[in-house]
Design a protein around this nucleic acid. Structure first.
Length: 301
DNA sequence: GACCAGGTAGCAA
DNA sequence: TTGCTACATGGT
């Protein structure tokens, strides 16, 4: 058992745990007494996530008190918590770089001001891959619920701090589930995508993990080999699960924003438009996408 | 009972 | 490459 408190003045700027964990960049955290995902006040709530990357599942439990983050884990460290929540990043520097790259971008400035405390997460790659394969034509709340179903049906449980936690299933466990079982978990036509991709990852997990270490364009090509992974899902997995901060997922929200605010950046294809956005926003384009997405979706504009 | 939701696979031109 | 369409499911 490890635990600790990460002080607010040691995290490179503001942190808003609720925004960060329920903004649709990750679907892997469960709020205790989970009611109204993505809608309620966040202060004082506990969130937990259980990954099974290591031999023994890792439970991480966090909550925010004021500007501090309290954490507790069975075998995770503060370093793990900081990485997953994006706390090692100097947010003021990211802002400066973004504004410097796109000085006349009023939507981006608006979003940066409106979403203070929003951090870009760095989640385990396999759960991120599966959860975004579940995402097409689905609402954020429901994608989140589907991951809960996958965990409770296939992942088993782990005991931690006097409570049982559902574990996110390993590639092997998901690969061994039948398509019918996956459909019963509410995956719909994505069941076969998840099944086939889980088999591919089970065959060669390193091929997925090492995608974090190759250049962006090659990484995207590699990810798109997985079934159910097109341009947009690939960019999400690269951004939120494989540390490619230049990736810009273009979903319906971002596409609408581009048409309205940056019509000159609209290309003839996804890859052209995303290239234009990467050029426009620069090295931290992924942060810009996250902020704009959250800003538009949360309706605070 | 339509219509919609962080799109993609499979196929044709 | 580009341009269709079918697609499971649950909520409004």
């Amino acid at each position: 058992m490890r635990s600790g408190t990460i002080r607010g003045h040691h995290v490179g700027g503001e942190i808003d745990l609720g925004k960060t964990l329920e903004s649709g960049q990750t679907f892997l955290w469960q709020r205790e007494s989970d009611q109204g995902y993505g809608t309620s006040e966040y202060s004082g709530w506990y969130w937990s996530a259980v990954s099974s990357d290591a031999a023994e599942p890792t439970v991480i439990r966090v909550r925010q008190t004021g500007s501090d983050i309290e954490w507790r884990s069975n075998n995770g460290t503060e370093t793990d918590v900081r990485r997953r929540l994006g706390l090692d990043v100097e947010m003021n520097r990211v802002r400066d770089e973004l504004v410097d790259s796109a000085p006349n971008d009023s939507l981006l400035r608006e979003a940066l001001d409106a979403c203070t405390g929003l951090r870009l997460v760095s989640e385990p790659c396999f759960p991120t891959l599966i959860s975004f394969i579940c995402s097409p034509q689905m609402r954020v709340e429901r994608i989140h619920r589907m991951q809960g179903e996958l965990s409770s049906r296939f992942g088993g449980t782990v005991s931690f701090s006097g409570r049982e936690y559902d574990v996110y299933p390993t590639p092997e466990r998901l690969a061994s589930a039948s398509e019918d079982e996956l459909k019963q978990a509410g995956l719909g036509y994505r069941a076969s995508y998840v099944s086939r991709t889980a088999e591919m990852v089970d065959e060669d997990i390193d091929s997925l993990r090492s995608t974090a270490d190759v250049p962006y364009s090659e990484a995207r090509t590699r990810l798109k080999r997985y079934v159910g992974v097109g341009d947009k899902v690939a960019d999400c997995v690269l951004l939120y699960g494989l540390n490619h901060r230049v990736a810009v997922p273009i979903d319906t929200w971002v596409k609408t924003a581009v048409e309205e605010y940056y019509p000159e950046l609209m290309g003839q294809s996804y890859s052209k438009t995303s290239q234009n956005l990467r050029d426009h926003w620069g090295e931290y384009a992924g942060y810009a996408q996250l902020y704009v997405f959250h800003h538009l979706r949360s309706g605070d504009n």
